[in-house]
Write a protein that binds this DNA or RNA. Sequence first.
DNA 1: TATTAAATTTAGATGAGTCTAAATATTTTA
DNA 2: TAAAATATTTAGACTCATCTAAATTTAATA
Lengths: 217, 217
Amino acid sequence: MQTLSTEDYLKAIYHASQSASGTVATTSIANKIGAKSSSVTDMFKKLSDQKLVKYQKYQGVTLTSEGVKTALRIVRKHRLWESFLVSHLNFNWDEVHQVAEQLEHIQSEKLTNELERFLDYPTHDPHGDPIPNRALFMKSYNKILLTELPLNKEGICVGVKDNSSDFLRYLDRRQIGIGTPILVLHREDFDQSLHIQAGNSTLMITQKTAENIYIKP
Amino acid sequence: MQTLSTEDYLKAIYHASQSASGTVATTSIANKIGAKSSSVTDMFKKLSDQKLVKYQKYQGVTLTSEGVKTALRIVRKHRLWESFLVSHLNFNWDEVHQVAEQLEHIQSEKLTNELERFLDYPTHDPHGDPIPNRALFMKSYNKILLTELPLNKEGICVGVKDNSSDFLRYLDRRQIGIGTPILVLHREDFDQSLHIQAGNSTLMITQKTAENIYIKP
DNA sequence: TATTAAATTTAGATGAGTCTAAATATTTTA
DNA sequence: TAAAATATTTAGACTCATCTAAATTTAATA
Ligand SMILES: [Mn+2]
Ligand SMILES: [Mn+2]
Ligand SMILES: [Mn+2]
Ligand SMILES: [Mn+2]
């Protein structure tokens, strides 16, 4: 049985190891968690004692298979709760993260599994991220960044890289969401900005925006 | 913003002050929380510093109006979650308490209010206990114990005093639940056991059982 | 490659929440 | 009402999670 804090660390380590490869550095977790690196070092030692990570002084950590499992159990709960909040409790996709951050720590296998059943076994959360099933297995789409979508080839928005409220509300205003069909009409060489067709409307987006939208071609 | 621990203490003090009258003693909270009385004394001081209870050394505590409000906000969440677990997630009424004990600490007014709406503004939880509304107001039935129900006067089971799994499952086996109509056919003078009609079946129950069932006459 | 810069760890401290054991106050009862 | 029993508080210690400041290691660069 983990504490709330160790669970958050394991999840942060898991996410960090997804984006970058190899070991996860102290500072990257310190930034994610919002703690000082000395605190992170302490936690790395604790997690190492519990055999949840492999830790080598000055070299960072990697999750053990037990650590991955524990992290995935938290991710599963986080994403199921986010789905519930959006589908049944009128939350917008930019409001769910902070609450799911708490709900993910509720300990009850029955609760998690019944919630999954109640939601009819969703495969992806409101941000397009895959939800691990009971066996902790998930399959993600074969997705690319919008910056990589060739001209005039239609794709579908299946996710976002930046989950911040600011970005998600910006997409709301642009009427871009999960499932929106997207076509790149023109790519401006000067600043890499894009003219796109999103749903029925055409609009311009910056490179920075395009870098944070996942597309299934 | 309270910690999980102070919230549990406030709730325990609230419940204790409902049953008994006057101030709440250290030991009674120690028993409810499952902590040593020295720990309770420490917490009483902290709550007193926060003006949530009035504390006089050796004399116990009483909740301030701010303390009552905080306690009721927890009770509200606890009972809404219990309702959700039973009505939508296939939990039995004897399984919900432990999970609600965790869920009651989730901090999000929007979550609480949307959950209440989703459940269609329930007034009572699965154990028959009243759910405080958004304004923290609740009205409870005019209820009596089954031991006090006169012979041959029909009443309805509207609650239980003992919320233990053992007792609730015992009632399940006897097919007694919230809403079950009950008639006392005979009261045995020797041991105060009762012959009752519960729903369609007649059965015998001990005084101890009858003392834990609330009836609306 | 020697020096500087950056990352990481260690040492020592703090606060919350808990405990045991001892001291003190209150309540019961003879 | 004085002694005994019970309840409560105090003193001192422990764990967990965190911090700051200093020391150490690794990485970058001149
Ligand atoms: Mn969390
Ligand atoms: Mn998400
Ligand atoms: Mn609780
Ligand atoms: Mn209840």
